[in-house]
Design a protein around this nucleic acid. Sequence first.
DNA 1: AAAAATTTAGCAACAGCGTTGCGTAATAGG
DNA 2: CCTATTACGCAACGCTGTTGCTAAATTTTT
Lengths: 369, 369
Amino acid sequence: MTRVTADVTFLRDYNQALVMAVGRTARTFERSTVVEATGLTPQAVSKVIARLTADGLIRPAGLRRPGIGKPAVVYELVPDSRYAIGTHVARRTLRLVLVDLAGTVHHSAVSPLPRDFTPEQLLDALSAGIDTLAGIGDLRSRLTGLGIGMIGPLDQANGLVRDAHGLRHWHDVPLREIAEKRLCLPVHLDKDVTAGITAEAWRHGATFGDAALIMVESGIGCGFWLGGAAHRGAHTNAGEFGHTVVDLTGPRCVCGRHGCLEIVHQHAAEAGDVAQAARVLAVGVVNLLQTLDLAHVVLAGADLLRHPQTYLAAVTEAVGADARRADWLSTRVALSSLGADVIAAGAAMQVLDQHYGIPELAHSLIVGG
Amino acid sequence: MTRVTADVTFLRDYNQALVMAVGRTARTFERSTVVEATGLTPQAVSKVIARLTADGLIRPAGLRRPGIGKPAVVYELVPDSRYAIGTHVARRTLRLVLVDLAGTVHHSAVSPLPRDFTPEQLLDALSAGIDTLAGIGDLRSRLTGLGIGMIGPLDQANGLVRDAHGLRHWHDVPLREIAEKRLCLPVHLDKDVTAGITAEAWRHGATFGDAALIMVESGIGCGFWLGGAAHRGAHTNAGEFGHTVVDLTGPRCVCGRHGCLEIVHQHAAEAGDVAQAARVLAVGVVNLLQTLDLAHVVLAGADLLRHPQTYLAAVTEAVGADARRADWLSTRVALSSLGADVIAAGAAMQVLDQHYGIPELAHSLIVGG
DNA sequence: AAAAATTTAGCAACAGCGTTGCGTAATAGG
DNA sequence: CCTATTACGCAACGCTGTTGCTAAATTTTT
């Protein structure tokens, strides 16, 4: 996915990914669509389309007769040509989903995890779940890998779980490595919220700007999509949004500071005042907008989705009412369209992204990285 | 700088920029250095070096005799082969600097601006200042352009000043365009803090990770460097850090909300308690770290630099004392090494960046952007 | 002093990318 | 049936980085 040097294979992969992005977003498309969107020459697009067709990733789907002239061939993505499995590992539950190349979630299953489960126990559960999913239509050969969205902190670059909150047996576990060995599949490990925002970015396609996924579920975290890619931070620790101070004189938080968004929100929620809790969250969201200037804010998480409209209304209002926001400062606020599947689905999409997504050049890592 | 499609010219520019980045960071380098840093083949590096040498951007600077074998040719950047002028437009002052290809600031001059100056008046001042600077060593032919770092809000992509805070005559002024026409130079317009963080990134080279430049100067703002590039946000409005709420029950801010970082900080500062003001700022900085997980925090701005050690100590302590920060969560806090020149110097570097920096692929803009 | 080993440098041929030029196929309108 | 128009692709091309191999410059060994 990330490489340092740019050679011709990068060109190929990059432009191919552009076409795939168009295909995923537009459902059907033709050569001229891609030409317009990318600026490539028609001939170049023809070559890319030929390659993708040969790989079975796209296929012709009829003709378009625009009037005069030779009709254009209409193409479409072949959704069932590739699959990925995604999983959301939470403290007590394991969610598994099957996602196709178009980003559609086909099967979603939740199973309980033992209290304080060990890596072994997780692998057992994953192995069983994957066998079930992969057996459905003999997908094994079209399965590109497994994506794991997990609570942090972790070290994404090295596939390491550093010290998962509230799980005793998870200190410096090389989860990616041991899962690949055990499951015989490429594995992509990432923080839950980062996987989640990837799902949203996939579904929106190239029109998706800078965005955050706000997740309220046993704590408050968020995932970022900035500059066309997920933002993980220097140590895969971005998104500890719940532990930003919003009330200097507020109650003490478990993290040691006073008036963290999370503890203030929790107090309101525990008092039964959901509307107030939502308003507190909204203050945090506006803080994010002031800081990062986002185009999209997506709301998700089990606790939030218990009162979706309350939270949506509070955040929308706070974003709109902010006196500093001029008319050109538009931000779209929405609930996650994938609901409880966001994290798991996003994890699966990250796997597909490694193969068919837009490759990145890791020039920031060239020296001593 | 940004393009959508990846063609062979992108390869050339990209790999050339990698070599330039090495040259800027390392002062002297040889072929094997670049090979190691980039992963390019020695032959490819030879070709790049030949091109850069022909353009006069680098030159041989002796031999290195490592013992056995043919000695390696040592190269160095030719700092005076290209220049750019940078300017920091503040409410009452105009700062102009001359920066060479290596990022060294050669001349720095501040002049007052009329109260509530008009675009015309700014252009007059710029024109005069540039003539003085460019005349110094007949640099005109080696001048790549002018970079403007300015108070926002503005629209970087279109070179537009939307509505500069506190300046009556600056509503939707197409500053980039009119400056290019008047000064007969390529002009790059950007928000002050974004220019500033670019300066820091340039000086640190490829080792620079995710970072923020905190600027305290008639308000509190910050610039971001995320994922190897400046982060401007969806509407060039990222960095309104001073208007994030840190005290829900705090005093009302000019922006209409209560307990913004800026107003709380200001109250402490006006009470003469600089240490307390610094501690307030430090809370905001830790909030940023929790949110974005940064590797570097750089402190700058006239108001802050009046008490540099107080602020540096407060922020360093808050960052280190945060109970959640494990040993692997290291963040370097520092004062800007460029002092009051950061913004102007960074603006100049942005111009050089357009020519010799790492090009970007704007794949997020391909549809309807 | 001569030969061997080692490292650096570059020429030449090559593969693969997008581009350009141009011919061909398929349609609607006259 | 002819023409204009649009879509499509083969072939040649220019450019990139890569590979294979030769030459040059130096130290070490004989």
